[in-house]
Each structure stands twice: as C-alpha cells, then as structure tokens.
Amino acid sequence: MSKGIVMNCEQAQQHFVDAWTGSLASDEAAALNTHLDSCGSCREEFDRAQLYWNALGALPAPEPGPDLRTAFYGRLSRIEHGAGGERTGWRWLRHPAFQAAAAVLLLAAGLGLGRYTGSREDERLADLRKEVNDMRQLVALSLLQQQSAAERLQGVSWAYRVEQSNSEVLTALLHTLNADPNVNVRLAAVDALRNFSVAPEARAGLVNALPRQNSPLVQIAILDQLVDLRDRSSVPSVALLMHEPGVSPEVRERAEWAVKRLQ
C-alpha cells in the first residue's frame, strides 16, 4: 500500500526516472504504481519512455583514443616549462635578438641575485623537479595499464623520463616484461629497463624473466641486455636456460654466446 501518499499526473512524472533506475523509496513506488494503475495515459507514457531510457543506456560509449592523452600531456608539459603556448599576441618575445638580450640581462641579474637567493631557488627547483617526476610517473603507470598495446608502448617510453630510482615504475616495467601479452611492448620494456640498470632489482628482474618468456625475440633481447650490462651474476641462470627443454635453437645459441662473453 502507498501509506497515504497520493500522486497526481505531474507528481507521478517526477518519479518516472527514479522508478526506471530502481531508486524509488518503497512508499513512493507503491504510490506511483497506484497512480499508474488508475491513469491509462500516464501508464502509456511511463512504458513508452522507459523503452527509450533503456535504449539510451545501451548506446555504445565512445572512447577518446590515445591522441587526447598525448595532446593533454604535451600542453601540460609546455605549461610546466613556462612556455604555456597559449599566447599569440607576444610573438616579438620569440625574436632571437630579443631573446639574446633578455638572456644576457637575466644572466647578469641572476649572478647578482643568485648569491642572496640561491638556497631558496634550489628548494623551489627541487620541488619542481619532484613534481615533474611525480607527474611523469603517473603518466607512465597509467599508460602501462591501458588495454591498447599502442598506449602501453607509450607508457614504456614515458618510463624513460622518470628518475632511475623510481621503484614503482621499475616494478611496473618488470610486470610488463613478465605479463604483457604483446611482444613489442615486452621488447620495449626490456630496452627501458636499461635505464634502471643501476638497481639490482632491475638486473635480477631481467634474469628471472628469461625462462618465463615464450618469445625467442624477447629472450634474445634480454640476453643481449645482460651482456651489455656485463652482469656476470647472471651466468648460472643463462647456462641453465641453455639446457632447458623447449628453448629455441636461436636462443640456445645466443645464450652460449652470452655465457662466453660474460665469462
């Protein structure tokens, strides 16, 4: 029962959408049903409009594609570096003569003021660098999780721009190397890991990834990387790989070559 709530046509129409989305309170739902049972035109409107409401929900959702992200971060990066790229009425600022004169003036002013404000500027610069690095990390991590292989490749290329000490990006790259279904993305991850080679985890991650790979291309890329890094600690693992059943002849040959080079 409707617990005494009585609706007219206009009040009933206010509740139609709530009824379609199932967000009506029970007493309101009961009152609406009572009204619909007694008002043929509202019932007809309710049922017909509900069809369109449901159909709208089934419309496919468009995707923005990778261009939007690239354009956004490009513009953000310009702002970060102070260029903005937004003004068009100040072109004389870009004239080389003006820029050279400005550079000299700024250098002189900088030398004069630098000794007084040096430490404060250093702090600001450090903050700015950290902010930029945080942003790059966010972009890299976000892109590495995308469904499209093209976007994950972009994520790998962003990984080059973060500091070598960034463990979150290193972990994400190693995860990509071990789990990404796309060979090109995994190959790019091997290359990007070179940027982190000072970290023992990066080298260990490369070695551990060797037997897990199902692509000879990726295995050969890892072997080449280990040789380039002169990672002698990897010799036992590479030697083991040579004797693993199912390893392709090309990989076995490259592993033999790698062991010789590393010894």
Partner: peptide
C-alpha cells in the same frame, strides 16, 4: 601542483 591536474585528467 600540476601532477594533481594529471591525476584529475586520468
């Protein structure tokens, strides 16, 4: 913080 804008964008 510009990194905050990147987070909102994502």
């Amino acid at each position: 913080e510009l990194a905050g804008l990147a987070a909102l964008f994502e």
